[in-house]
Amino acid sequence: MEIIMIDMKTFKKTMVQLEFLHKRLDELVRKNQPKRLEQWVDAEYVCRALGLTKRTLQVYRETGLLAYSRIKGKIFYKQADIETFLLEINKLSNEQKKKL
């Protein structure tokens, strides 16, 4: 085994450069990671999960209460949008809920 000695100034300079390199690599890794795919569900799933009729779900879409996307004629919802919708509904008073 061979031992190599370096002076403290050189060691500190090398450590600063390594720290810079480490931070830069972290930035590049974060930048180039694939984006998390969002979970999409269809109308049938939403109706079953929330206990809604298709017509009620359609009303929520038409009034802008629930965001959606149409792909090749089929309607899909982001799970995150459904969760946001449920949180907003829970904030409403009972009188406001009856109007929905």
Score class of each variant (00 low, 15 high):
83 E>T: 05
26 D>K: 09
96 Q>W: 04
93 S>L: 08
13 K>Q: 10
8 M>E: 12
73 G>Y: 04
100 L>I: 13
73 G>F: 05
86 L>K: 14
60 Y>I: 01
65 L>Y: 12
47 C>V: 10
98 K>G: 00
23 K>T: 11
67 A>Q: 13
58 Q>S: 13
6 I>Y: 07
94 N>D: 14
58 Q>G: 11
61 R>S: 02
8 M>N: 08
77 Y>L: 02
55 R>A: 11
52 L>S: 02
82 I>W: 02
29 V>W: 04
61 R>Y: 02
10 T>I: 09
46 V>F: 03
66 L>A: 03
20 F>V: 03
77 Y>D: 00
16 V>D: 14
79 Q>G: 00
35 K>T: 07
94 N>M: 12
4 I>G: 01
92 L>W: 13
84 T>M: 07
18 L>F: 11
52 L>M: 13
68 Y>L: 02
81 D>K: 03
84 T>H: 09
74 K>L: 12
38 E>A: 07
54 K>I: 04
80 A>Y: 01
14 T>C: 06
53 T>P: 01
50 L>I: 04
25 L>Q: 10
42 D>F: 04
30 R>M: 08
59 V>P: 00
13 K>I: 14
39 Q>K: 09
98 K>H: 10
5 M>I: 09
77 Y>H: 12
7 D>P: 00
77 Y>I: 02
41 V>I: 13
65 L>G: 08
53 T>E: 09
63 T>A: 07
60 Y>E: 05
26 D>V: 03
66 L>Q: 02
57 L>S: 02
9 K>L: 11
75 I>Q: 03
100 L>H: 08
13 K>M: 10
95 E>S: 13
23 K>L: 12
